[in-house]
Nucleic acid binder design. Sequence first.
DNA 1: TATTACTTGAGGTACGTACATCAGAGCAAG
DNA 2: CTTGCTCTGATGTACGTACCTCAAGTAATA
Lengths: 343, 343
Amino acid sequence: MRPTTKDLAKAAGVSLATVDRVLNKRSGVREETVNAVNEAIQKIGFVRNQNAANLARGRNYRFEFLLPETGDDFLATVIGRIKEARTALRLDEINVSYRCALPNNPHRAAEILAGVSPEDSDGVAIMAPESPQLRDATTRLVERGVQVVHFISGQPDLRPVDFVGVDNNAAGATAGRLLGRFLAPRTGKIVVVSETMNSLDSVERRLGFDKVLSRDFPNLTPLPSLETFGDPERTSRVVRTSYENHADIVGAYILGSEARLAIEAIRKATDPALQVIIAHERTRYTETMLRERVLDAVIAQNPGHLVRSAIRLLKARCDQRQPLVSQEQIRIEILIEDNLDLR
Amino acid sequence: MRPTTKDLAKAAGVSLATVDRVLNKRSGVREETVNAVNEAIQKIGFVRNQNAANLARGRNYRFEFLLPETGDDFLATVIGRIKEARTALRLDEINVSYRCALPNNPHRAAEILAGVSPEDSDGVAIMAPESPQLRDATTRLVERGVQVVHFISGQPDLRPVDFVGVDNNAAGATAGRLLGRFLAPRTGKIVVVSETMNSLDSVERRLGFDKVLSRDFPNLTPLPSLETFGDPERTSRVVRTSYENHADIVGAYILGSEARLAIEAIRKATDPALQVIIAHERTRYTETMLRERVLDAVIAQNPGHLVRSAIRLLKARCDQRQPLVSQEQIRIEILIEDNLDLR
DNA sequence: TATTACTTGAGGTACGTACATCAGAGCAAG
DNA sequence: CTTGCTCTGATGTACGTACCTCAAGTAATA
């Protein structure tokens, strides 16, 4: 059997009350005694039964996803998974909620974060582009005792806050290699379309993409990134101009998580069957495009996994437990028409 | 707050004792009263607090993985993940164990299953090729009150036993399409190597592979499957003979989860850099081969996910809960050198 | 020495559920 | 009316932990 607090009390030679004081960091215990208890914890391998503790405490976890104010199909999918997790986890006394509240403006986004208090939330998952303002706001949030993970976009290596998402550099490299291999041995230019290049995510993808192309596929020349800014007409125009100016465009890489605008512009400008086109994120739209062979591959991250991983990390932090690292690594998925359907 | 058994008693107009009798299916309650309680459960949306119940009952779950007697690198990886899950889940009173016990012979494997009793195990995950003997043994296991899932290999649509693994037909199709696209526009023959074609898994992969090639890549002709039977010399010989007999072999598809023998044979017979080679399952060996560009892609299923999914399904069955379907779908992963490293 | 502060132990109640025991109600058969 | 049976309620203990109160101990200070 697993040792209980009683066993611990016996092993440490103190009473249950003292064990309780130490475990829950209450005051009024000599340092010496604290050490004795901690040593006993090591010695007998005591681990608190979190379920029993939560039961006694009547605890429930409140986790909130702070998402961008406006979003695309991918965000909608993420929200769907959040709702799913919400219903599934209610039985475990975990309340999951979300708010599409974060504006693009980093100052105003930071203000939203400033409004989050440990009274309302045990932890938040923040989906927002990296910025100094957000970084500061995050630090203050953590100081106030709210657990934080950065979600999908943001700074990967900003400890002690965890990052849930993929390495965008590697994602871009993956896209680059597939494009190169699908196109070989053809020669030509590659259109690169992004919603905006103002986000670190896009920049990193582009860097990874370019690196692979320049090193391993010198026959392919990526053009400067076209930005859509979410505007259909602008997108149509810049994409058409590109195809008009370069007769030897053989493929396209769509950087952002909103592929629709770019793809529709490309379809208007040229015959997609003669191009190799790669986009990011699985949505109903990209699925359809894969099936219709407009898209040749989609580089994706699993939204359900992202959501559950964020929640597990937040809970692990609340419980002061180590998460199972291998479970929380988000994979860069490659989707083609044949591995789209799940059993 | 979630309704408790007390709330349920009040709502049903009975005592706590009666509620307990109904919930735990004890005898001595009029059918009428049972119905009244069940209606109240629906009405107030009562769901048993499984943690509290387990605490009171002193319950712990015992799940066992029944694996093949002998195995390859992939099986070793799976075992590693089982051990990982074992340590992680001990805190949740879930005891995970494994036994490399199932021989190839279906009769003897069935005997092993016959030896599993609900006294020792709450649930087992069985990794064994589909056979009538095993199917019967599984049915009897379930009747004895042991939860069962089929693990990685076996029959996908054999209800009410769950299957944890990928659709091998789709996995083969995925391999076929990648091979075809990586090779385009070349023309030639494809070597197909398998450990044995006696397993349904291999057959299904081959079917999916052939279907894609014949429909979408008529320029590529897959050769009849070569079987290694785990014998290095035999493998060397048959592969070399293939390459000698067919000057126009441009690629290879390695069906099984043990790629080493086939790859080494191919390296001896020809220059792998001029071939497109696709194999299954991520192991340290296939990772290395991807990095060295001997392999062009690996079709894989995530062993950690497989293991955890099997455990979650078994636990859900024990608790008579519905699992979260979207979480338990095992994806067909495509690995290339760029999406190999995880953050 | 008396007073005070700090440390510790002993014991209780609670969380939501399981499980056991006993008492009483209702009812039918003798 | 008694006996025996079935159904139900009341009550208690337990699981492992949290949190509270009170008493008693020790040591330092006035």
